[in-house]
Design a binder for these strands. Structure first.
Lengths: 230, 230
DNA sequence: TCAAAAGTGTTGACCGTACACCCATGT
DNA sequence: ACATGGGTGTACGGTCAACACTTTTGA
């Protein structure tokens, strides 16, 4: 006895950092149920397709071709969601994926059915997408503590300040620029210096870096300072 | 268009610590495919059942009634697995769950179709269960670093040494007993002293503790010492 | 010359490790 | 008495937060 059958979809929590805000890609639904509500982008798993393939395909379709194969960016599974009443059409299991992308310039013609929304402003998503979004954001916050994945939010070349703004936007905190610079540049394999500098703005030109091979951050970058007793 | 339909199952990575070994609960399959192979316990999701319900039901069925409702123990989702060829019977998506349990005495009559196996000795599981097991063990190892969940492996009352043996078995390392004791007893909310002591063995009697309300461990308990440069 | 941003030096608090040492019990 | 394991004291080194200070640019 095999239980009943499910439709299986993939939903994407696509995050990027724009200015000071952590933003999520939402689409406006054009069909029932939840017609005209905002929801996470996603789609059903095709025959002979594995879950990461579906996620990469949907991500490319929603954000422009080739994204999944780029050097920067990141795609990982969050969890499966299968509450019996999560979709009024029947039993639908959705596997959520988290994608982290560098900020991209707005398309020439602003798209009314798809766009970036600061996660702090999001409310009332379709299905259980609010929960999935919350889980994805929390996953991203945790991941930044222990890995070098913040660089996935940055373009191929970036400054230490770009990287710091990622942490500040995702964690909604402020970080001391001097100590942050020392920490990330002294972690072996996190940042590879290019010896080129950005110029144009006020102040001393900042050096440009690329992502290094390191993936784990030891010791961790902690969101909250260690508990002070006394 | 909704893609094709899947059977959806739940597979369990049930871990416990016996002596010096991290052990996993395996069942010997009695049906095709992979008849007579060892595999993870699991089952299909019933109508109107959510994934955690299925996991809890299967866990109770495999380990004895009431386990899911106990104070100790832990159950969390690992990930969904849906490679097109993972089950020769057709498309089956499996959501894996990680369960951490205190060691239980062996049943009176040893069960030939179900039993605890040191994870270091496990090889050749059915389906993609070897991968699922590896993911679950890695999740458990990470979780112990940043949370107080090691106590989920312990009975309701336990000594600091019991807790240390959990870390040592899961991480396959040795930890200094004196510093470990200081660390865990000084973390607020990790351990609640009962003022009772275990007696009988050699040496000074150890104090018995219960789990405290804390869930996060700050600062983390690190598996490997911080990277030494130079 | 000034403002702004990048980056370095330094200090004190805290944490982890290592290990000497004492405590409490069974044999 | 001695072995065994539980637990405390302490010193050293590393990391972090804070912040004074220097460097390098644009206006």
């Amino acid at each position: 006895m095999r239980g009943n059958l499910f439709a299986v979809g993939v939903d994407l929590v696509v995050l990027t950092v724009r200015g000071d805000d952590l933003c999520v890609l939402l689409v406006r639904r054009t069909e029932k149920p939840f017609e005209n509500s905002w929801g996470l982008p996603g789609g059903f798993v095709a025959p002979d397709e594995d879950l990461p393939d579906t996620a990469a395909r949907e991500l490319a379709a929603q954000t422009g071709a080739g994204t999944a194969g780029r050097v920067s960016g990141h795609l990982e599974q969050i969890a499966g969601y299968a509450a019996p009443d999560r979709d009024p059409r029947g039993r639908v299991l959705s596997v959520a994926f988290l994608a982290l992308l560098p900020d991209m310039p707005d398309p020439d013609q602003p798209d009314v059915v798809s766009g970036w929304h600061p996660v702090a402003d999001v409310a009332d998503l379709a299905f259980d997408h609010a929960q999935i979004l919350a889980d994805g954001v929390e996953r991203a916050r945790e991941t930044l503590e222990y890995t070098t994945l913040a660089a996935a939010f940055c373009p191929p070349e970036f400054t230490v300040t770009d990287l710091r703004r990622v942490y500040e936007a995702v964690w909604r905190t402020e970080i001391d620029p001097r100590n942050f610079s020392r920490k990330v540049t002294s972690t072996p394999g996190f940042l590879v210096p290019t010896n080129r500098h950005v110029t144009g703005g006020p102040g001393r030109p900042a050096q440009l870096f690329r992502r290094g091979p390191a993936t784990r951050l030891h010791p961790a970058m902690l969101r909250e300072p260690a508990v002070r007793v006394g």
